[in-house]
Design a protein around this nucleic acid. Structure first.
Lengths: 238, 238
DNA sequence: TATTATAAGCGTAAAAAGTACGTTTATTAA
DNA sequence: TTAATAAACGTACTTTTTACGCTTATAATA
């Protein structure tokens, strides 16, 4: 056990101090800090999440978001990038920080603060074998199982943010393959908002934004007529 | 110095472990966690921030946001509520968490993560004597001095969020006195957006929302004719 | 070879929301 | 009585959003 002394803070709250720590903030306590990643993908007209089946304690065998503890030499975003790289082998993933979860009992093992990041990736960029080896799977957002701790809540918050972001930014650039059709893009937005849109108005609005470049190539997977392929003029959201 | 061992993690990263800690996460490091409060108020047609002149090290004598370290038995919001209460004596302050700041060198003394909260309070609810005794002052957002660490950046992020929130929620209910006039409300929005609005359209829009109740009383401070006083139908944003 | 079925794509009209700005009103000080 | 002024009311115009009818290209089928 460390040697401690009790001090009185400016606000009058008594506080236990580590007598051995000589720093300015030595009266203060430290905490575990983690990041958790809400990894969105789009496949088969469905918005999906990459979740993992835990092979280690705690909560072994249960489903969870991919996460990890923050290391001394990294900031939160770097921690999220590392966690994502370890799982997917991908770099340059589009990321956004969400509000930090701090409930005292949120983790059953210890006091852990967790900062969630949501990531947008192209399902096609990810090796299915790697997914399997990581005990991960792509799960439709509408069919999510119970996840550990407060992870389902994090997903809910991420979805709200994704919906807001989809109004302001061309998020398709991070979720669709390089070439895609307008109907495919529409089905992405319909998946994000769980809502059908008028195809004529959708097309009109998206083309008016002048973000897409029409290619000289058609995709005939879904119709005899075939749909023209497009690509984003900018290659990423950043 | 604590006794440590070096372990190899699942991802292959070597990590220093505290040999004395027996918990599931014992190989992980802990960090200082703080909250900082961006306290908005509205007075004299200006959006203001309550900032403090530090009487303690570090950064003694410099201006900063009010902050404090997270304590073991509180979550982030409770920490922010405590910090705000210590400074203002007020409870039930409207609060919103912003994204956590985690740059390694953001605090010159130690590795400290800080989660900013922005607060909306009625300047009138706060005893000016108390403000003075706390070495605090209300400072117009447009005339902020250099604050310590990354506090100016936090203010910028808070402002962006306030502007978005002002579009969706009747934030006036937290920033104005109970009774106020339409021109006063307009000047609040003009202060938040640093932009003038058409008074006829502003009035039309705000009344159409059906949030305000017209009182049988006029305020003659700014005109001979006097402006009708209103109050919000709901007493708070929560 | 002609017909049919269907997703893809084009266009137009009506409704709603947003913007711009002229005029009247209530009051006090001169 | 008049002048000055912030407050308040109203109307026309523009832009955006919404709703929906119709045509087109193509492969499978008769």
């Amino acid at each position: 056990m460390e040697e401690t002394v009790t001090i009185l803070t400016a606000t009058g709250t008594p506080r236990v101090q580590n007598a051995a720590d000589p720093g300015v903030y030595s009266g203060e306590q430290k905490f575990y800090l983690a990041v958790d990643c809400i990894i969105f993908g789009f496949e088969d007209s469905e918005l999906k999440l990459l979740i993992i089946n835990r092979i280690l304690e705690p909560e072994k065998g249960k489903w969870s978001l991919m996460g990890g503890f923050v290391q001394p030499k990294e900031n939160l975003e770097q921690a999220a990038i590392r966690v994502l790289f370890d799982l997917t082998g991908l770099k340059n993933i589009y990321l956004n920080q969400l509000i930090t979860q701090s409930e005292i009992d949120r983790d059953s093992c210890a006091r852990v603060f967790s900062t969630p990041y949501y990531a947008l990736i192209k399902v096609q960029d990810l090796d299915p074998l790697r997914v399997e080896l990581s005990h991960a799977k792509w799960c439709p957002v509408s069919q999510l199982p119970k996840l550990i701790f407060d992870h389902n809540n994090m997903v809910e918050i991420a979805l709200q943010h994704l919906r807001i972001e989809a109004q302001n930014k061309p998020i398709g650039v991070e979720l669709l393959p390089e070439k895609f059709t307008i109907p495919e893009l529409q089905s992405l937005y319909e998946a994000i908002y769980s809502q059908k849109f008028d195809n004529r108005n959708f097309r009109k609005n998206i083309l008016k934004m002048d973000l897409l470049e029409k290619l000289d190539e058609k995709d005939r997977q879904n119709s005899r007529k075939g749909a023209w392929l497009y690509r984003y003029k900018n290659k990423s959201l950043k």
